[in-house]
Computed example of a mutant assay.
Amino acid sequence: MAKRLVSLACEPVPGLGLQRAVGVGRLSVRQLDGRTRLNRLYQEGCAKIRIPKTYHGSALEAVVINTSGGVTGGDRMNWRFEAGPGTHLMLTTQACEKVYKSSGGVAENTISLSVEAGARLAWLPQETIMFDRAGLSRSITADLAVDAEALFLEPVVLGRRSMGEHLEHADLHDRWRISRDGRLLHAEDFHLSGPVRPVLPQSAVTSGRSAFATLLFVSPRAEGFVTEARRLIGPGGGVSCWNGKLLARVTAEDSFELRKILLPLVSLLNFGAELPKVWSI
């Protein structure tokens, strides 16, 4: 009888799917007495938002948290942030987001940002770590007022080399759509799919390096930072600037080397604010 009970417990239940993580987070800020203050906050499922006490001048720092501890195929995260007129909002993540091996489908992460007149916003998540056979579809959509400024960063690590991890197969799709005053300013799609080891050594991908980042700085002051940004990045990437935006690509051997480049680079472009405290924990 005992053996029969064990057998029944291991059999799949018809119609019962795998448990998936779903999270929705919303936050908006407004200006009050010359400082950026919380206006609205909504969180659902595994999506949490925390606002630590910081000393960034007029900036408000919000920390995005996925309490499920990572994502895998079929998980869905949806975030929306709004910076009201004249505000300064800095967004980051509590830790690196880990994308685990998928048993089917991809994880979806949707980020929507709104930056109103005279506002400044920085989207500065920590690294996304891709494990072998992981799948992630991520979209960043931002609407900026004509005089708003914004800084966007997305660092990615394709397996942690210090842990002996190497990617053979992965599915990563990054989609960015950034508009200013209702007109498309920046659009890009980065897509790795299937066996990735043969394509990573290509110079148009990562030149064989396992860590990389894309940084976009939208500001009428962008051109003034090009020379220093190129010096900080060195031979591991490049910087272009046109039409009021600075675009940087960075590659490195691992996440530690990537951070050594990103920390001073973000400090240069982060509107005079300190880096998020969670980056140093």
Results as ranks from 00 to 15, higher is better:
98 K>I: 03
214 T>S: 07
116 E>A: 07
184 L>M: 11
43 Q>Y: 06
99 V>R: 02
231 R>F: 08
52 P>M: 03
7 S>E: 10
104 G>I: 08
184 L>Q: 12
55 Y>H: 12
96 C>A: 13
177 R>H: 14
114 S>M: 05
31 Q>T: 10
153 L>K: 02
258 L>W: 01
20 R>M: 07
3 K>P: 03
83 A>K: 05
139 S>R: 08
54 T>F: 05
82 E>R: 11
97 E>M: 11
11 E>G: 05
198 P>H: 04
45 G>K: 02
133 R>P: 01
279 W>N: 02
64 V>W: 01
135 G>A: 04
172 L>Q: 09
125 P>I: 00
71 V>H: 04
180 R>T: 10
174 D>Q: 15
193 S>M: 07
223 E>L: 10
84 G>W: 01
61 E>Y: 07
239 V>F: 12
49 I>P: 02
179 S>K: 15
269 L>P: 03
193 S>P: 02
260 K>R: 13
235 P>I: 03
280 S>A: 11
155 P>S: 09
105 G>R: 08
264 P>H: 12
44 E>N: 13
109 N>S: 09
53 K>N: 12
21 A>F: 08
239 V>Q: 06
82 E>Y: 10
281 I>P: 04
251 T>G: 05
229 A>T: 06
235 P>M: 02
29 V>S: 00
216 L>G: 01
52 P>A: 03
144 L>A: 00
247 L>I: 15
167 L>K: 06
186 H>G: 07
217 F>K: 04
266 V>Y: 00
47 A>T: 10
154 E>Q: 11
86 G>M: 05
173 H>E: 11
126 Q>T: 05
242 W>N: 10
36 T>K: 08
277 K>V: 11
263 L>M: 06
171 D>P: 07
206 T>Q: 04
17 G>T: 10
20 R>H: 09
61 E>F: 02
259 R>P: 01
122 A>R: 00
39 N>W: 07
149 E>N: 13
61 E>W: 06
17 G>L: 12
135 G>F: 01
239 V>C: 09
191 H>D: 06
213 A>P: 00
269 L>F: 12
8 L>W: 10
223 E>A: 14
110 T>Y: 14
208 G>D: 07
2 A>N: 11
19 Q>P: 13
216 L>C: 13
151 L>D: 00
152 F>A: 01
70 G>P: 04
54 T>N: 05
227 T>C: 14
237 G>I: 01
207 S>F: 05
93 T>K: 00
266 V>F: 01
199 V>D: 06
211 A>H: 09
234 G>D: 06
